[in-house]
Design a protein around this nucleic acid. Structure first.
Lengths: 292, 292
DNA sequence: CTATGCCGATAGCCGGAGGCTATCGTTGCG
DNA sequence: CGCAACGATAGCCTCCGGCTATCGGCATAG
């Protein structure tokens, strides 16, 4: 039994679409093919990766841990094939993190319809807050403001979530309904290594700022952050929306008091005036595609 | 015709080993299997990726461009499979760049023999000068000193190469036998984005320092650096050894006068005292395996 | 000049991955 | 109760990716 590329693709697609059928459509193959691919993968592991129950399919704890790496494989392969065949995708969409979830899949559906040509998906970690927009690695991205990019990029808000603090299971804070600066004093924090505007603002005195920080641990990706939190290495400043897609046993999200919210936004290069992009942006302007 | 994982693996192995037979051995498959895999890949592209001539196999211009991405695919897949099967590799060896060449393959052979268990290869870009040693992503690495890591890492020199400047074909400097600071005044430089100790030293007045710099362009990887140089976006400070494995049409390497050399070194965590590592280091102590 | 060996390509074979269509079992809902 | 949705199963075909055996080109040794 072998771990093959189509099987990994199928796994990622199912996790993203939340359905075997939808995954099959998005991959351009039949539904039984997707079922078989995922089953093969699960046979290799010996444990289930996806839970099929009423109301869709969700990854298991193990599946969620594997997902980020699976996306990396698919992304690297797509890159390779693009160079190999010389076909440049019409549009590349960048996402922070693994980009699994309803927002991603809905947005992609709209983009694919509006674009016509091939649309590529690319994952980015904390090391590039612009999700490849500045380097040209992507043309359109779902980013987490604020971005310190001057006026090179244009953004349009998509959604906002309450801020939350991720703490390990069993932490004294884990049971609270909400936490404030006083509760967070003397903590070690897991901090995005290369993206600390939000963090710096958080440490500023006043408002919800927490100044009593015992230490910082760097992290390059969401998954790593949650691993570190679960391991008790520190707590992290995230959003409640993160919990939806990255929920992980051993990590509890506690809302931050004070009503602070953090946003997710669409971004693109102001200088990019290609009809492809403007067309897609127009299609995305109608907000019906947004989940909820 | 499909781009499959084993085909990419075969391509990478042949490029690294410089021979179909050796690649087959290192992959644990037969030689015809490797031949067929590479041929399939070349059929997809429509152009040759590897040149077979007397004295070994070398990638073509196109092959070299694809190699870095192919390595990324293999690396991501290995990561994924490691998590999937739960088998942790005995030892992970980190390399800066694509790590194709005799040094890599010889070193790996010695490590594999001395280690016994599974040995993983992992590529790193400029964003991590320690090649994953500090984060635990690797246990042993081929790095480019100097490293600003305090005394966390121990290093052992492997080889030194003359420094050279990469300039685009057709540049006035391209024909010279050697260049000095005076020749390099007023240039735009392509600089590793996150690894500029060497660069800063280079800009210091005196010695071979060049102070008259017109601008800087950031780069995250060797391949990107050479792309930028070939495109005329700037010139880059590299080593003559780089030319051996990354030779690229459109880029000429001109030696730097003054006899400056840059070194390649083996590095590991000082705190890592596992028998696996010490055994491998002892095996690598006998220098017979070094190329040339 | 021939013999020998090295190395990659070719031929012919087989098992399994991965695709399809058709159909069944469950489950939720009108 | 019947229908629709969705995933699993069954049966079939193609081609990838592995093997062994062998051929062809090109060194180098005798």
């Amino acid at each position: 039994m072998e771990v093959t590329l189509p099987a990994i693709r199928a796994f990622v697609a199912v996790a993203r679409e939340g359905s075997f059928g939808a995954a099959a459509t998005s991959l351009g193959v039949s539904q039984p093919t997707v079922s078989a691919a995922v089953r093969r993968l699960e046979t290799v592991v010996g444990r289930p990766l996806l839970v099929r129950d009423r109301d869709g399919v969700r990854p298991t704890e193990l599946g969620r841990r594997l997902l980020a790496h699976a996306v990396a494989v698919v992304s690297a392969t797509d890159d390779f094939e693009t160079l190999l065949t010389g076909e440049t995708p019409e549009l590349t969409v960048g996402f922070m993190g693994e980009a699994a979830g309803p927002l991603t899949s809905r947005l992609l559906a709209v983009v694919r319809r509006a674009c016509g040509g091939e649309v590529r998906l690319r994952r980015f970690d904390f090391d590039d807050p612009s999700c490849g927009l500045l380097t040209g690695a992507s043309d359109l991205a779902v980013v987490w403001p604020p971005l310190e990019t001057g006026d090179a990029l244009e953004t349009r808000p998509l959604r906002t979530d309450p801020r939350a603090v991720a703490v390990p299971l069993g932490d004294p804070l884990a049971g609270l309904a909400a936490v404030g600066p006083a509760d967070l004093a003397g903590r070690v924090w897991v901090v995005p290594r290369s993206r600390d505007e939000v963090w710096r603002a958080f440490r500023r005195p006043g408002a919800a700022g927490v100044t009593d920080v015992a230490g910082e641990v760097g992290s390059d990706a969401i998954e790593e952050t949650l691993e570190l939190v679960a391991a008790g290495r520190g707590v992290a400043l995230l959003s409640e929306g993160t919990d939806e897609h990255y929920a992980r046993a051993g990590v509890v999200f506690v809302p931050l008091s004070g009503g602070q919210r953090c946003s997710t936004a669409l971004a693109w290069r102001r200088a990019d005036t290609r009809p492809v992009l403007t067309g897609v942006l127009r299609a995305l302007g109608a907000r019906e595609w947004l989940p909820e």
